[in-house]
Nucleic acid binder design. Sequence first.
RNA 1: UGGGGAUUGGUGUAAUUGGCAGCACGACGGAUUCUGAUUCCGUUAGUCUGAGUUCAAGUCUCAGAUCCCCAGCCA
Length: 578
Amino acid sequence: MSDRHFIQQIIDRDIAEGKWGPKGDGSVVKTRFPPEPNGFLHIGHAKAITLSHGLAREYGGTFFLRFDDTNPAKEEDRYVRSIVDNLRWLGCTWEGARDDDPMAGVRFASDYFDRMYQHARELISKGLAYVDDQTPEQIRATRGTPTEPGRPSPFRDRPAAESLDLFERMKNGEFPDGSRVLRAKIDMASPNFNLRDPVLYRVVHAHHHRTGDAWKIYPMYDWAHGLEDSYEGITHSLCTLEFENHRPLYDWLLNNLDGVHHPRQIEFARWAPTYMITSKRNLKQLVDEGHVDGWDDPRMPTISGLRRRGYTSEAMRAFCEEGGVTKFNAKIDVVRLENALRDHLNKAAPRRMAVLRPLKVTITNWGEHGAPTRVEELDAVNNPEDESAGSRKVPFSGSLFIERDDFIEQAPNKKWFRLAIGKEVRLRYGYWVACHDVVKNDAGEVVELLCTYDPTTKGGEAPPPDAEGKVRKVKGTLHWVSADDCAEAEVRLFDRLYTAEQPGKASGAHIDDLNPDSLEVIAGARLERSLGEASPGDRFQFERLGYFYADPDSKPGAPVFNRAVTLKDSWAKVAGQG
RNA sequence: UGGGGAUUGGUGUAAUUGGCAGCACGACGGAUUCUGAUUCCGUUAGUCUGAGUUCAAGUCUCAGAUCCCCAGCCA
């Protein structure tokens, strides 16, 4: 029985055979994550990052972060910074990373442009590449179809010296965009289009975010990527399935260069979480058309968005690592993502009480058992999963708030454990209270509950047996806050961005599947007083409600909380069944 | 109609030279519980189809089905 996925098995074999160094030495393993800085990273990238990073760490090898910045028209420095930040947050740091300089150790394809150019000259000299003067349209027209071979370019057999000269002049900026390309001379009849004389270099007069205007020619992916891997000594170059058709070209190029290191490319399947999209184009549409508040909107599947939602990097990594690695394009249930967060935060997040939609509760017999204005400080456990988290004091008085959803005038059935007229519940860490009356406004809505409390139930303990030895029981425990001593906050509740499991699949357009209720902002939530001072980035479990994250929008005394995920709610199911 | 990949319960995965189809999530039921949470116990359900080889097939052979990727001077 082997629990090692297919990539681990390949690497195990390579190491055993000593393919990359001394037999049995895993430390030679070198992987990389090679994003193009043309957008924000999403949940799918997180999987790729943790895979390559995790493999390097597992074998005691090396992991690089390298930007594949070979297309100046699409790339920006802000994307570089965002990606670097995302990897650091994920805890997937690369060789050479330092805390005092976020960019330390980061590599760029553009650093290798000179070497790539020289290697291209080598290929031309060997008669394996040529400058083609055809237009893009002509090249497309002569590429052939799946069933017909392509036709050779009239420039295919141009002497190497002539190509060398033209290539240099392309580099020097003598020709306009689109006028000439460098092509590999492979096989115009190959069933694999990537081998029908693929373009290696194109002329681009655009400003590059790092090299400025130094270059007028830019390498294409297939030419650049293998060389980058080779220059860096990558042993296992992991990429997604759509590059399987590119591997023959990857290998052909490196095989035809003298004395270069030749990594092994391995492809694995991408992930498609349900109710999410990961297409860059579609994500951009959400931002551009204002369906969300930006790339880091907490509803976005971007790493920045999930982070702002309140996800922890531990939960993200656990999610990425639990799913396995295969070549099967799987739909992965978002519930797994949510569960990963719940698992982590259940152990890590301090508990607090917060009332999202407050309903006033007045304890009518509060004055009969002591001073009517007295406040009792009760002990509340900070985290039942973590004894070392200790406890805190919460103020209890005759004037409280409970959750509006926790009261109904007439209990619908015996499974209603919460408050109703004539019913008794426990207030967590507080007293047992029974509701005997309600106050309504002119519209007939309940605006206040009149309850009595049992002084023998302090701290939530069960009352002593009565004269006949019977012990009173209570089914429900509600969260609450003191009405006189609490903080106020804005709370943002999120639901799935889409209502369809595979957005756009059935409807044709992902926009048509947007969930109109994906965001609900609650203005007047009441919190335990200590929560008023929450700092951005703080995380709590609001008991019975879910896990919450103090948004960067929080100001001192005016916190903003995002609900990262709810608690599992089996009552919702019972209620749904009527 | 060409080429490249893939297919195991509802979902995601595992199974050594062919040797009892395992794990996790979900769903369902129960126990515990001062969170209808957590935790614990149990139940559920699967090898794409059809032939063949074999004492024995998820695994090997043949035929077929379905899904994904490929005709950018994007990556």
